[in-house]
């Protein structure tokens, strides 16, 4: 009887694994489509008009692809920081703070969510298509921009992600507030920043440096002057901005942890 019960337990484990594998597969599919659905929206818009904010379809698709790849990479590497409220609520954060390792590193490495690969795959596929078809006049400098832009963008998004979710140290429902910044800037950067009014642009493109993820690198690749009249050097500034963003995020995170240790709740 005892080994029969064991058999039953093992069998049900396998069955539930299989069941959960369906869920896993669906998750990957969801991520693949999820990133692509924004592209569908862009393409639908271009069935009605030929330009958006002064850019044609292929140019906007290029911006979308840069943003999507950067966002996918950031999500894959630091997406776990979204779980910060859970760590605080369950008291697991205290356990992490007791270990002689960086708190953030521990949170980020807690769960390598492979299902998030889907987003990167979609982003890269559209990016490859955009690089090939948007008529870029390739020079060595542009090759360098093409190679580094998604990475710099990922670093910028990652920093934004960490900084925004730090709000959970102060606010109970911080995750939802952080979403408006993280997912909001992802949405914002998928379109040319010329479509936004001055205030939205200041906040979601410069204060949160989303403009350096896709808009400026795209201008550099396309060899276009900036319709908004920003200086040319900004188009090559993403690595610098990425470094600054990381520094800023580190400061914010440290302040958050200090605040948490201060209140101790």
């Amino acid at each position: 009887m005892a080994d029969r019960v064991l058999l039953r337990i093992v069998a049900s484990r396998i069955r539930s694994q299989l069941a959960y594998r369906t869920s896993f597969a669906l998750h990957v599919v969801a991520q693949l489509i999820g990133q692509g659905i924004e592209l569908v929206a862009i393409l639908v818009v271009f069935t009605q008009v030929t330009s958006l904010g002064g850019f044609d379809r292929d140019e906007v698709v290029l911006m979308y692809a840069l943003a999507a790849t950067a966002f996918g990479l950031a999500d894959l590497s630091v997406g776990q920081v979204e779980e910060l409220p859970t760590y605080i609520r369950t008291g697991e954060l205290d356990v992490l703070l007791l270990r002689p390792l960086g708190t953030l590193v521990q949170i980020l490495s807690a769960d390598i969510a492979l299902k998030r690969v889907g987003k990167v795959v979609t982003g890269l596929a559209v990016l490859a298509y955009a690089y090939a078809t948007s008529g870029i006049d390739w020079t060595p400098l542009r090759v360098l921009v093409a190679a580094t832009a998604p990475l710099c963008g990922a670093v910028i998004f990652g920093a934004v992600w960490v900084a925004a979710n730090t709000v959970s140290f102060w606010v109970v429902d911080g995750r939802e507030v952080a979403n408006s910044v993280t997912y909001g800037s992802n949405f914002a950067t998928s379109y040319p920043i010329t479509v936004y009014g001055p205030w939205l642009r200041r906040v979601l493109c410069f204060a949160v440096p989303g403009a350096f993820v896709a808009y400026f690198p795209a201008l550099a690749l396309l060899g276009r002057p900036d319709p908004l009249g920003f200086p040319l050097w900004l188009q090559y500034a993403p690595p610098l901005v990425a470094a600054l963003a990381v520094g800023g995020a580190a400061l914010v995170w440290r302040a958050g942890v200090r605040r948490y240790q201060g209140t101790g709740s």
Binding site: V49, V171, E176, V177, V195, L204
Partner: peptide, 25 residues
């Protein structure tokens, strides 16, 4: 209240995109 913030930010962004479309026609 927190969810409302996200609603409103996305509302602003989506309105901006649709208005950019209508700037053409």
């Amino acid at each position: 209240l927190a969810g409302l913030t996200t609603n409103i930010v996305f509302g602003l962004l989506r309105a901006a995109v649709l208005l950019a479309v209508l700037a053409q026609r």
